[in-house]
C-alpha cells in the first residue's frame, strides 16, 4: 500500500497542479496511457467542482490517494457549502450555474472514466468524492 495526500487553495490555477500531482504519484506503477488520462480527467472534474461549488470565498481542497497492488483510489474533498441534492447534481447536463457556460457533465464524466464513484456531502460541512479504478 502506498499513500499520498495534498492540500491546496481552492483556486482555479491549482486544477492543473492537482491533475499532474495525482498522475505523478501513479507514475511508478507504469499505468497504461489510457488509465492515466482517465484518472487525470476524473480528478480535474472533481477538483473543479470543489473550486466552483464548494466555496464563495477562500477554501481548501484535499486530495488523498491510495494504491494497493493495482487498485487505485482517489478522494477529492472540500470543506465548503456541500451539495443539497446529490441525485440532482449527478444528473447529466444538470448545472446549478446555467449562466456560467458550465456543461453539467462533471459527475457523468467521473462515472464514465472511473470504475466506481461515491459522493458524500453535508450542508456547510463539505463534499467528498471518492473514485476507484483498477489499473491495467
Amino acid at each position: 500500500m502506498n499513500k499520498m495526500e495534498i492540500r491546496f487553495d481552492a483556486v482555479s490555477q491549482n486544477e492543473a497542479f492537482a491533475r499532474l500531482a495525482v498522475s505523478g504519484f501513479l507514475l511508478y506503477k507504469n499505468p497504461g496511457i489510457n488509465d492515466m488520462e482517465d484518472i487525470k480527467m476524473a480528478v480535474s472534474e472533481a477538483v473543479t467542482n470543489s473550486i466552483i461549488h464548494g466555496y464563495d470565498g477562500e477554501g481548501t481542497v484535499r486530495i488523498y490517494c491510495e494504491i494497493d497492488k493495482n487498485s487505485f483510489m482517489v478522494t477529492v474533498e472540500d470543506f465548503g457549502k456541500g451539495i443539497e441534492n446529490i441525485e440532482l447534481a449527478r444528473k447529466p447536463l444538470y448545472t446549478s450555474r446555467p449562466e456560467e457556460e458550465r456543461s453539467g457533465m462533471g459527475f457523468t464524466i467521473m462515472e464514465a472514466f472511473m470504475d466506481k464513484l461515491l459522493v458524500t456531502s453535508e450542508k456547510d460541512k463539505g463534499t467528498k468524492i471518492t473514485m476507484y479504478k483498477e489499473l491495467k
Binding site: E45, M105, G106
Partner: peptide
C-alpha cells in the same frame, strides 16, 4: 487535455 469546462466553453 480538455475537461468538461472546455465543452461548456465550446457550447
Amino acid at each position: 487535455f480538455m475537461d468538461s469546462s472546455g465543452i461548456g466553453m465550446v457550447l
